[in-house]
Amino acid sequence: MFANTFPTEQEMARLFARMLWEIRAVHFNAVQPYRLSSGMASPVYIDCRKLLSYPRIRSAVIDFAAATILRQAGFEQFDVVAGGETAGIPLAALLADRLGLPMIYVRKKPKGHGKGARIEGDLPEGARVLVIEDLTTAGGSLMSFIEAIRAAGGVVEHGIALFYYDIFPEGRTGMKAKGVTLHNVATWRDVLAEARVRELFDERTLGEVGDFLAAPLEWSAAHGGVASLDA
Rank of each mutant, 00 (worst) to 15 (best):
A65C: 12
A65K: 05
A65Q: 11
A67S: 14
A67F: 15
I69R: 02
L70Q: 08
Q72A: 11
A73S: 15
A73Y: 09
A73R: 13
G74P: 12
F75K: 00
F75S: 03
E76G: 14
Q77W: 05
F78T: 05
D79N: 15
V80M: 09
V80Q: 12
V80K: 10
V81I: 15
V81R: 12
A82G: 07
A82S: 12
T86I: 04
I89G: 02
L91H: 15
A92T: 03
A93Q: 11
L94S: 15
D97Y: 13
L99D: 02
G100Q: 11
L101W: 06
Y105I: 00
R107H: 07
K108C: 08
K109R: 12
P110E: 00
K111R: 14
K111A: 06
G112P: 01
G112H: 06
H113C: 01
H113K: 03
K115R: 05
K115Q: 07
A117V: 07
A117P: 00
I119A: 02
I119G: 01
E120I: 12
G121R: 14
G121W: 08
G121E: 05
G121H: 03
D122R: 14
G126I: 11
R128V: 09
V129S: 07
L130G: 06
L130M: 10
I132G: 13
E133C: 07
E133R: 05
E133H: 10
D134L: 09
L135E: 13
A138K: 06
G139S: 09
G139F: 03
G140E: 09
L142P: 10
L142Y: 04
S144T: 11
F145P: 00
I146Y: 02
A152W: 08
G154D: 12
H158W: 04
G159A: 15
I160R: 14
I160C: 13
A161D: 08
L162P: 05
F163A: 07
Y164S: 04
D166T: 01
D166C: 03
P169Q: 10
E170W: 12
E170M: 08
G171C: 06
G171M: 08
R172I: 01
T173D: 10
G174M: 08
M175W: 01
K176G: 05
A177P: 03
A177M: 06
A177S: 12
G179L: 06
G179R: 07
T181S: 10
N184L: 03
V185F: 00
V185I: 00
D190I: 04
L192P: 02
E194L: 04
E194W: 05
R196W: 12
V197A: 11
